[in-house]
Design a protein around this nucleic acid. Structure first.
Lengths: 220, 220
DNA sequence: ATTAATTTGTCACCTTTGTTACAAGTAAGA
DNA sequence: TCTTACTTGTAACAAAGGTGACAAATTAAT
């Protein structure tokens, strides 16, 4: 049983302080087995769900029936925090446990009371939903790149962190899923970048030979 | 001089009530002439900027020095609200007035005080960021539809509002821009749907002949 | 009603990505 | 070490969408 002090929403509060605060509100604490559904796309979002331990993912179902993974959420983190206060408060994605997961659920009204009790919790929550909006905004910018090569170039530049040579954290299959394209297409895109002398690829080892050319690909 | 009661952040507050509340905090009210810079890329985002009247744009300077317009913001609206409390608390773009603009600026700490004075303001702010996230999420879901036909089918079903025949609000060129494809491709997609007997098209007049087939295009 | 501007239909050809398939390379465990 | 599972390289063909062009239809403006 993980300690709730480690949760971002409660950052800055001491253990005893947190215990006292939590006594004032009503909330649930429960566990979900791997692969189970915590919430489904379209369901009413009337509570804050926080992953205390374990991992979950947000997944959108696309028209061909394939699932497009939007995000991995690794404990400790909140789910659907940005959708709790909107006009249409419905989950935008299916929330699925990718491991056994322990969560807490706080009803919306109780969360508001929590904000009144402790300004730090409010600060934390504002930070969480703001970061979420930033994340979505970046994801959208990413999807707006027209060609696969542009997406790959953007991804590689971000991954490289100013290093010339580095190792990819994901397989080509995972990249294909992230980019929403077929796996061989990712292979081809790597091949093209290599043929153009922009990068050097050997399995997951990447060497950036022409950083400017790489950024030109998405800075049209 | 626009009335601040019309601003979304202060929705639900009466004029007198709002005046009293605003007396308790420190904030700036000022005007910017057309083309002037309200905030620059990289600058710390430590205040909420609300456009009371006029229009501004967000513009990004890319590595090669070109300016790329990211977003238009039309009064009344908040600027960079997700960057005030987020992890990356720097303006990601230059904020430039595209007309004479009247704004108010509330320092972050004063905004927090405002949240304490009036829970409705907090609710409004939470709602604003939530709506933004919902907007982004829907946009993302739309982009996740793999084929143009799926996007078009989704769009047509949403536009139809249970009617069999209706008139499109947008031209094919506008749809092309919305979908991120070329204009003739939109025309082809309409043609295909017509050839398949799913819809009947005559310029902007649309008749849905097979609603199920239409939803199948993005539902599986 | 007539003209001008915009929108739409459609064509031919090109590029990118999807699909399927199989061989070869790599990593991790027995 | 050897085996097994997974990842990568690559090929051939299909399908979707991009591009540029032009005519025809519609709408807006005079």
């Amino acid at each position: 049983m993980k300690n709730l002090v480690e949760i971002p929403l409660f950052k800055g509060l001491g253990a005893e302080e947190l215990a006292q605060t939590l006594k004032k509100i009503t909330f649930q604490r429960k566990t979900f087995p791997k692969e189970s559904l915590l919430a489904s796309q379209g369901e009413e979002c009337n509570r804050l769900i926080i992953i205390v331990s374990g991992n979950v993912k947000g997944e959108m179902t696309d028209p061909t029936g394939k699932n497009l993974k939007i995000e991995d959420i690794i404990a400790p983190a909140a789910v659907a925090s940005a959708f709790l206060f909107g006009k249409k408060s419905f989950f935008p994605v299916n929330i699925i446990a990718t491991s056994d997961a322990e969560i807490i659920q706080i009803p919306k009204a109780e969360l508001m009371r929590l904000f009144q009790f402790d300004e730090r919790v409010l600060q934390n929550y504002l930070g969480m939903i703001s970061s979420r909006a930033q994340f979505l905004s970046e994801k959208l910018r990413f999807h707006s790149f027209k060609s696969l090569k542009a997406k790959l170039a953007f991804y590689l530049l971000n991954e490289s962190k100013d290093l010339i040579a580095f190792k990819l954290k994901r397989s080509q299959s995972e990249l294909a899923e992230l980019f929403g394209v077929a796996r061989p297409s990712v292979g081809r895109a790597f091949l093209h970048l290599q043929e153009e002398g922009i990068i050097d690829v050997h399995y997951r080892e990447i060497k950036i030979l022409n950083r400017n050319a790489l950024s030109d690909l998405f800075n049209d």
